[in-house]
């Protein structure tokens, strides 16, 4: 696997390089997927374009009400959560359940998105945050993450385009997010099902906005639109949560594979959506009482309870 390595100093240079090399090349940031694919002989690009040290893509910042995460921010940084505002617990909870510390220390958020795995853990979280991606290249553009990922390993990225940042509106008062993942073991696991939810409750306790995203149950991460609609305007009662969870389970299209059956995945969707909504509701309640963000339980314990 001989290849040439290129080290552009700017995003524009990286973009031009990919266009000039016309095909037989790959961007490398953390490399946790690409290096494995190359070691296994599944990919053998003639050129690698090292984007791991490009400037301006490694920070988490908040400008007014908009949060921006640079594409080179690692899962470990997201897990530690420095710079992430209140109401974004789901980011931390999802990040800390990816691989081991050794992988999280180098695997980047941009890479997790660009890889477009149907089981990606941060993608459902970014979907419920209604995040958009900043793509730079020949024609810069911003695209909602849900329009970027088309299917397994397929995105709408055009040649010469790089994901440079991920942006979303900071969750306001009365808002919370949550993330749950089920696997066959507690760590170092690809999600059998993952679920993220975001909820904004009004002063009257009714849902002003709800988003639910389901991973690993379709060719790409799905929004459970039917469940969201059923909850809109109503309080998060036990009955409403149960109904929404059932609607979510009905709308997904899981497959049976070596890790789980379709039937089991559907049961997991129902159970995890319930939990995700309950967690959001608890968090909103706690932050309303204490005025500070609620700290999440250890997700490992939650996973234990799910088995």
């Amino acid at each position: 696997m001989a290849f040439r390595i290129h080290r552009p100093e700017t995003v524009d240079e990286a973009s031009r390089l990919e266009l000039d090399l016309d095909g037989d090349c790959a961007f490398i940031a953390g490399g946790t997927d690409l290096v494995v694919q190359m070691s296994r002989g599944q990919r053998a690009p003639a050129h690698l374009i090292d984007i791991s040290r490009l400037p301006g893509m490694s920070a988490i910042s908040e400008d007014g009400s908009v949060v921006e995460i640079g594409a080179l921010v690692t899962h470990r940084e997201l897990e530690l959560g420095k710079g992430l505002p209140q109401g974004t617990d789901a980011i931390r909870d999802a990040a800390r359940q990816v691989g081991g510390v050794q992988v999280r220390s180098i695997a980047t958020l941009g890479g997790n998105i660009a890889n477009a795995s149907p089981a990606a853990d941060l993608v459902p979280v970014l979907m419920v945050l209604d995040a958009e991606l900043e793509l730079r290249g020949p024609h810069g553009r911003c695209v909602p993450i849900s329009d970027f990922i088309e299917g397994p390993r397929r995105t709408t990225r055009q040649p010469g385009e790089l994901i440079t940042a991920i942006r979303f509106r900071a969750p306001g008062n009365g808002s919370a997010t949550s993330f749950f993942k089920a696997g066959r073991r507690k760590a170092m696991e690809i999600a059998v099902v993952n679920v993220a939810a975001s909820v904004t409750l009004g002063a009257d306790g009714a849902c002003r906005s709800v988003r639910i995203a389901l991973g690993s149950v379709a060719p790409k991460t799905l929004r459970a639109i039917g469940a969201e609609k059923a909850l809109a305007g109503s309080p998060l009662s036990v009955a409403a949560i149960r109904e929404a969870a059932q609607l979510a389970a009905d709308c997904c299209a899981p497959i049976t594979d070596i890790r789980a059956s379709a039937e089991y995945r559907r049961l997991l969707v129902k159970s995890l959506v319930e939990r995700a909504l309950v967690r959001c509701s608890e968090q909103v309640e706690q932050s309303a009482m204490s005025g500070i963000s609620a700290s999440a339980d250890n997700p490992a314990d939650l996973l234990e309870r799910s088995h």
């Binding site: 390595i5 490398i28 953390g30 490399g31 946790t32 290096v35 494995v36 070691s39 296994r40 090292d50 791991s52 470990r76 691989g99 081991g100 510390v101 050794q102 992988v103 220390s105 180098i106 170092m188």
Partner: peptide, 25 residues
């Protein structure tokens, strides 16, 4: 392939799987 951790080294203060990092990186 980054699953077992036997190759863990500390790189710039962070633990990493050295099998997932290219030497040139």
């Amino acid at each position: 392939v980054g699953d077992c951790g036997a190759c863990t080294v500390i790189m710039d203060g962070s633990p990493v799987n050295s099998c997932l990092v290219l030497g040139i990186e």
